[in-house]
């Protein structure tokens, strides 16, 4: 039962991921991504990580993707089209082929690494501890892995600031840059 569910969820996740890059319209991509996120949440649930599953839906499906939708709706509707079709056109260029090759290679490396459990010592230990309940998850995040957890938040902050700097428009003409 759970094995069948796992394979079904994995299939949906993969199809969704493929749909994200193959869909002609941006809206199609977003819907595919949504399906992929949900399938991932199901896989988390099957693995016993209830909190992760809920966080996955809450953060990714409930907040981030809604923002994506918001932006897409502000784009030109006529140019996007309202039909859902697949297109392989983006994969014709040499650069895209190279990117695909690299992505697939990295994915393979990750798979092999997971298979051989050749992970760093601390991470291997973490997976040995049960972090299924909220209490244990909190203990792990704010106790043992407090520093990495805080570092990640700093990373996010840095990313945000970087985006602001990159996206800021330079004022041309008046002479005074802001």
């Amino acid at each position: 039962m759970s094995a069948a569910l796992f394979y079904l969820a994995s299939l949906i996740a993969l199809c969704g991921a493929a749909g994200v890059i193959l869909a002609k319209s941006a809206m199609g991509s977003v819907i595919s991504l949504l399906a992929s996120f949900f399938a991932l949440a199901v896989i988390y649930l099957l693995a016993g990580f209830q909190f992760m599953a809920a966080a996955q839906i809450l953060v990714y499906a409930g907040a981030i993707l809604v923002l994506f939708l918001f932006v897409i709706m502000l784009l030109n509707l006529g140019a996007l089209g309202t039909k859902f079709e697949l297109s392989f056109a983006p994969f014709q260029s040499a650069r895209a082929k190279l990117a695909c090759a690299i992505a697939v290679g990295l994915g393979l490396i990750g798979l092999i690494a997971a298979q051989r459990a050749s992970l760093p010592e601390s991470v291997a230990q973490a997976s040995a501890e049960p972090i299924d309940s909220v209490h244990n998850l909190a203990l792990a995040l704010f106790g043992r892995y407090s520093l990495p957890f805080q570092a990640v938040s700093v990373l996010l902050l840095v990313t945000m600031v970087a985006v602001m700097v990159l996206a800021k428009r330079k004022r041309v003409g008046k002479g005074n840059e802001q």
């Binding site: 949504l34 909190f51 809920a54 839906i57 809604v66 939708l69 709706m73």
Partner: peptide
Amino acid sequence: QLDIGIMYMLAIGGLGVYGVILGGWASN
């Protein structure tokens, strides 16, 4: 009886916005 009852609630409840957004978009 879920350990993460309120999380589940917020996660699923937050999806309600999709119906509104997609309905608005799909209507053309």
